[in-house]
Every structure is written in C-alpha cells, then in structure tokens.
Design a protein around this nucleic acid. Structure first.
Lengths: 335, 335
DNA sequence: ACCTGATATGTAATCGGTTGCAAGATGATT
DNA sequence: AATCATCTTGCAACCGATTACATATCAGGT
C-alpha cells in the first residue's frame, strides 16, 4: 500500500486511456463512450483517486470560492444570512469563505476581493470602501450597501418598514413616538431614521431631537437608552419607541423591567429584525420581520448569475412584515 | 491599458530579473539583495501585480484554507465560535471555509475533508462519521466530538457543568430537580444527562424518568417541554429544571409565563451556554457560561500547530462557570 | 595568488489537471 | 465507391507560480 496520492495519470494508466480522457470522463461524461467511462470509474474506485482542486482551478482560471464579508460574525443576525448563502452555494459547487471585517485588516480585505482567491464576493458591510471593491471581482451587496458602489443589491425597504412600525404605534393612539438608531453613518441607520421621520410627518408629527436616541444595534446600547429615557420626565418622554434592532429593544426592555416599569403598559416597543428569540421573551416583541435566510439565498443566486454573465437586476427589495406581538398596546391603557 | 492580469513573468521582465527572483522577493525577502528587492517591489507596484493563489497552492501542495463543519450555521451559538476561529485563521494567512452539515450532503462533506480543498478541518458536529473523517486531513474537534475519532478536542467539562447547576439548585433547597436534554444521540446530550444523574446521586437524589424531558436544543422544544411540565401534577413535578441549552430554557420560560406562572417563583430554571441575550430577558437567566470565542480560538490554534507538525495535546478542557442571575431562587419562596 | 564559504541570481523541472487540435473509426449519404 | 459528418480518443501545450540545482561574484584567510 503506497501512500502517495494517486493522480490523474495513475488513473489513466490503470484504465488504459490518456489523462485527457480521464479528465473528460470526470467533467463531461457525455463526451466519452460508455465503456471508457466505466473503465475510468473502475480505475478511480480502485485507486481512491480524488482530483486536485488547485490544479483544476489554475487551469480553469477560477477558484470555486465565494467570499462573504461580514461585519461581525458573532452577530446572530448575520449567521442566518450566511446560512441562506451556504444553502445555495454548496449545491452549486462553490465554497463559502467567510471573512470578518472586524478582525481582518483593510489590506487583507483587498486580498479577498481577488480573482485568484474568489470568483465572487458578497458584501454585507456598508462601511467598506467603494474604491477598494470596484472593478475586481463580481460582487453583490446584501442588507447593507456601500454608497457609490454600482452593484446588485438585495435589501429590504427600510422606509416602508419604518412606515409600518410608526403606523402601528400611531394606530394605537401614540403621539409621542421616539426612535432608537443604529450607529451613525450606517446606511441602515440613516434610512430607518429617515423613514421614521417621514412616517411621522405624514401624520403631522415631528421627531424632536430628544426623541432620537442613538444606539449601535447592540444590547448594551439598548440598555443605555433605557437609562436616558427613564431620566426624561414621564409627562413629555415618548410613550412608544421604535428600535432599529431587536437587540437594542431587548436591552431596553430588560432594563426598564429591572427598574420596575412594565412593557407595554409604561412604554410600547417595536423592534427590527425578528431574530428568533424575541418571539419568546416576555412580553413577546412586536417587530419588523426581515426574511434573513431569503436575503442570503437571493444574494447568492444573484451572484452566481452574475458570474456566468446572465443579466441581473441591479436592485432587489424584499418585503418586510410587521409582526404584532405583546410589546405594544394602546397608549395610556392600564394593565 | 491592457486588461490581462500581470503574471510573475511580467514583473520579472520589468524588474530585469528572473521569475525565481521575483518569487523569492515576495516570499522570502531576506534571500534577495536590497536593491533587487526594491526593483521588484517597484515593478509590482507599477504593474499592479497580485499573485495567483491557485498556482502557488498547486506548487506548494497546500490550499491555504481551513474548513469548519458546522451543524447549523443559523445557530448563534456557532457563529460566535466561528468568530473565534476567524480571528486566529485570518492573521495566520488561512481562509476560513464554512460548510453547513445540514445543507451539505454526506459526499460533499467528504469533499471538504480533502487535502486539495483544505489544509485542515475543524469539526463542530458530533454526528459525522468517524470513518469518513479518519486519515484524511489534520483535524480538531470543538464542542462536540465524534466518538471513536482520535483527534485533539477542545471542549468543556460537561460533567462539571452539570455538577455546578445541580449543586446550585440543591443549595437553594430544591429536591425535585428535572433535566431537559438535547437531541438523543448527541454527545453533549449524553454527557450532560450523565452529569446531572451523577450530581443528583451524589446528593442522594435520583433522576426519575418523568423528570427527564427530551428536547433538541431548540426554542420550540423548550416550549413543548413547558407543556409537558405544566401537565404534570404540581405536587410532584420538579420545582427546578436544568436545561441543556439556553434556547430551550428561553422557550420554556416564555411559555410558562404566557400561561400565567412565574419564574423563578413557580419553577427555577438553569440554562446552558450563556448566549448573549439571556442576561437581558426577564428574569435574567441563571446559566452555565461556555467560553465560546475562546473555544474557537483554541481550536484554530491547535489545528495550526498540528498542521506544522508541532506536538499537540490530545484533549483540552476549558473551564465553565455558573452565572447566577434571577431565574433561580429558594424552593417554595413566595414572591 | 589560490582556496573557501557565503550570498545572490538564473535555469528549468515541476505541481496536477484541462483543452485546442488532429487523427482514426464509424456510419450515413449520394 | 467516394464523401462527409459525428463520435472518441490521444498528443502536447498550458495555467502561474515555486524551488532544487547550478553558476557567478565577492570577501576574507593563508
């Protein structure tokens, strides 16, 4: 028993054909006669041959890999999108490479956007530089996007989402409605803030500065917002808050409950994302549902289409949905 | 402006040296004179040359990639481990490839455990077949493990964890203590169940069948357990439950609260994992903390060491910690 | 002046497949 | 019987780097 990996020439010798034929038997079986195909297959089985991807990729001038650039791998929001991406890429014969833009340096990101490393790129982080990405490999953006980069985008309608949330709160009689933002500069933060403002304006309400709370999507920042909100006079502070992420809404709810107030009696809360857990906390969170797996799936499909050169829509906006649970109620209702 | 990617020979020609020298200037700069190095660098800059990884990998007989086999990418528990893995692999010059063992077929998993695809493997799923993985590429296991596979493992002490949880509940006066398991057959399920049994036995208690609830780590299964538990007579059912995952504990708590009972007044709950959110729900969950990022980091370091041939410990057990929050209290306490 | 060892560079084989081109075989068409 | 299209297969160049080996240069020692 020898320990060398069998190569295509070993298979060829044993099957009594040329390496070209073995290669064809593997990658385009119909170009080879049935008998030869069987002989090659037998030789492959008997040698335990497995082809060398580096060699194939070199010759084919492709890599078989797609890179996903994720802002923060530890965030469950992204893991579900990755799951959608993986479910498409795997069956299509591509590997999914993930890179965390937090831990990777700027230059190593350049390395990823490189034809010899990956055949395509899925960008999930809007903070990256458009110049660094432009004109390198086929790419699509999902969820977030880089302003000024012309690439197909898979995203949700953040303005419509804000309209749903604010409409819901307004319908419940709330008139003092606040908004808790994500980190400044983030494209999602801006569009959700803009949407909130517009939805309020459509109802002849204004979003005053003291009703805008700045967070960063994290649980802790939601907790901090609770502190700010609790410090405002009960007679003038918002009776309802629309959060730009579920995580912040959770942090907020946890903290106000800890301080002895009740949600939704004392304040109504609408989140954003519908991450899995929030349906099961007390009170179950009213929130905007994003089709996360679907976003990932679509992004991957779009990218594959772009790689083979099919024409692709430049922008896809997936629908969001308001999921009404128990963290919102009519204003002033007792109990 | 030509559109062909410059190759190493282009750089060599412009720098007035041979390709061998360019190659050396790139990968072992100290073997090249200062002047030549500068000339090569200038040529690289002027051409915008980037090396072709497929070619390098082919020649070096390596791939520069490490595959992580994850049971379920959408699960936040794993995303944090991946984050730890990525933080080590990136700086070490390796790509992280992730494969979801749910979506990938069994044969495509074989493809991943392949020297031409990856230089190493991190297995996070204990359900895989030992035979399929044995003797292919260097691998380590993290969290879960495949029985019968001789590979370095990074894991936590599940028995000690159960001892901590049960000890805590016992100290609070609980005597009827139940356990909610993960899916049958999972190695973590078994060791946590065994640990629970042992910890109870050490306190002269037995774990009866009706105090063992079978779940599958998911939120929904925790919800289902609530149903079962609520159906048992209040005088004989457990007054405290130790869950094999936080997700199940959350599902359980949500459901019993929904049915009008209170945690911890009516039942004390201990979770497992300490996922980020559970510190912020009501009541904040008492749970076993697993050092997730650290597990990922260690697994990656161990694998890299194994790849370069350093001797590695076969087994690493990381400490767990009981985090006492508000979901547990003395038995029978009112309020 | 000659030898030795270190340093710097070039030559060419090599990694393991893929594929354009050509040739031989087979069957159908006129 | 000659011609042509189709199907199968082999030959050999090629993908773009790395590296063993050979060669050239130069400093220092005797």
């Amino acid at each position: 028993m020898k320990h060398e990996r069998p190569k295509i020439s070993d298979v060829a010798r044993i099957a009594g054909v040329s390496t070209a034929t073995v290669s064809r038997a593997i990658s385009s079986p119909d170009r080879v006669s049935v008998e030869t195909r069987a002989a090659v297959q037998a030789a492959i089985d008997s040698t335990g041959y497995r082809l060398n991807h580096a060699a194939r990729n070199l010759r084919r001038r492709r890599t078989g890999g797609i890179v996903a650039l994720v802002p923060n791998l530890a965030n469950p929001f992204f893991s579900q999108i990755l799951s959608g991406i993986a479910s498409v890429l795997g069956p299509a014969g591509y590997n999914l490479l993930v890179a965390d833009t937090e831990t990777a340096g700027a230059d190593s990101l350049l390395d990823y956007a490189e034809p010899s490393r990956a055949d395509g790129l899925i960008v999930l982080d809007g903070r990256l530089s458009a110049d660094a990405l432009r004109g390198r490999v086929p790419l699509v953006e999902a969820c977030e996007w880089v302003p000024g980069l012309a690439a197909p985008r898979i995203r949700i309608d953040n303005l419509a989402a804000a309209e749903l949330a604010i409409g819901h709160l307004h319908d419940l009689g709330h008139r003092r409605i606040g908004h808790v933002t994500g980190p400044r500069g983030n494209v999602l933060t801006e569009s959700r803030l803009t949407g909130t403002r517009a939805a309020l304006a459509a109802r002849h309400l204004v979003l005053t500065d003291d009703a805008i709370y700045s967070g960063d999507f994290s649980i802790e920042s939601g907790q901090a917002v609770a502190d700010t909100w609790l410090g405002q006079p009960a007679t003038s502070r918002p009776t309802a808050l629309f959060f730009a992420s579920d995580a912040m809404a959770c942090g907020f709810i946890g903290e106000v409950q800890h301080r002895g107030l009740s949600v939704p009696r004392d304040v109504s809360v609408v989140g954003f994302d519908d991450i899995e857990l929030v349906a099961h906390i007390s009170p179950p969170l009213t929130t905007i549902r994003q089709p996360r797996t679907d976003i990932g799936r679509r992004a991957a499909e779009r990218l594959l289409a772009k790689i083979v050169g099919d024409p692709v829509d430049e922008d896809t906006i997936l629908p969001v949905e308001l999921v009404v649970r128990a963290s919102t109620c009519r204003v002033g209702r007792t109990g």
